[in-house]
Amino acid sequence: RRAPRRAAFVRVSRTHRMPHARRQLGPLPVALPARAVADACRASTDARFAEALVIEAVQRRATTLTLLHDELYAGPRQRSATLRAGIAAAATGAWSVAEHDLVRLVRRSAVLPTPLLNPELVGPDGVRLPTPDLWFDDVGLAVQVHSHAYHADGDAWTQTVRADSALAEAGVIRIALTPREIRASPDDVLARLERTYLSLRTRPRTAARATPRPVR
């Protein structure tokens, strides 16, 4: 019932649904992550921001899709489109917005089947392999999205190179993509994926085995 006002970077909003579940952050009672993520998505008109926020919150295990669904249906319907978009993106199993963009691109194809996202991969010798971002199981094709933001660091880049080598040593054909080329040249990326997929259909498949990873 109080008039909302701003103070510096703080934006105050009215609500009839005060969060009962809270955490104490020093002197401040704060809402649980699911409520915070939901409110942030509703406050934005940028669907990509919402997708990135929800995916990261779920992947960092700050919250779950179940709790976010609860917030979606318990909160106001007004301006809930961005929250719905974020939940839908995280529900695909994507670990980043770039992966989600790639999944949407693959769905346009009349050639490519539905891929597995971030499956658990085991080599012919039973040793666990690095997780590919997308996996086309019928031909054993791995797709990796290499983001400069996450792989530019020296240790991260070393791990990326080792992961690519481990897949190659197990006989796995892989395609490496960047988020930028997925956004800027989607048709070229899709054509590249389709060409590689079709070429692998005429070759013996790698003995690597994939198990779908459950979405939290």
Rank of each mutant, 00 (worst) to 15 (best):
L25M: 15
L25Y: 12
G26D: 15
G26Q: 15
P27Y: 00
L28C: 12
L28F: 13
L28N: 11
P29L: 15
P29A: 15
A31F: 08
A31N: 08
L32F: 03
L32T: 06
L32G: 02
L32D: 07
P33V: 06
P33N: 01
A34L: 05
R35Y: 10
A36H: 00
A36E: 05
A36Y: 00
V37G: 00
D39A: 14
D39R: 12
D39C: 10
A40P: 03
A40W: 01
A40D: 06
S44I: 02
S44R: 03
T45I: 07
T45Q: 13
D46Q: 00
A47T: 05
A47L: 09
F49S: 03
F49L: 13
A50N: 06
E51S: 12
E51Y: 09
A52R: 15
A52G: 09
A52Q: 12
V54K: 02
I55V: 09
E56H: 15
V58Y: 05
Q59E: 04
Q59L: 02
Q59V: 09
R60V: 00
R60W: 00
R60G: 00
R61H: 13
R61N: 10
R61L: 04
A62E: 12
A62C: 10
T63S: 06
T64N: 02
T64C: 01
T64A: 05
L65D: 01
T66W: 14
L67E: 15
L68W: 01
L68E: 03
H69N: 06
H69W: 00
D70K: 05
E71A: 04
L72M: 01
A74I: 02
A74Q: 07
G75I: 06
G75D: 12
P76V: 06
R77H: 05
Q78A: 14
Q78R: 13
R79F: 07
R79K: 05
S80P: 07
S80V: 04
S80W: 02
T82I: 05
T82Y: 01
T82S: 08
T82G: 01
L83K: 09
L83P: 08
R84C: 05
R84E: 11
A85N: 04
G86V: 05
G86K: 01
G86C: 04
G86Y: 00
A89M: 08
A90M: 05
A90Y: 03
A90Q: 03
A91K: 11
T92G: 09
G93I: 04
G93R: 09
G93T: 08
G93N: 07
A94M: 04
A94S: 14
W95C: 08
W95V: 03
S96E: 07
S96D: 06
S96K: 08
E99R: 13
H100K: 01
H100D: 11
H100V: 03
H100G: 01
L102R: 01
V103S: 08
V103E: 13
R104T: 13
R104Q: 11
R104K: 10
L105F: 02
L105V: 03
V106S: 03
R107W: 14
R108E: 15
R108C: 14
S109V: 12
S109C: 06
A110H: 11
V111S: 09
V111Y: 14
V111M: 08
V111I: 13
V111C: 12
V111N: 07
L112C: 09
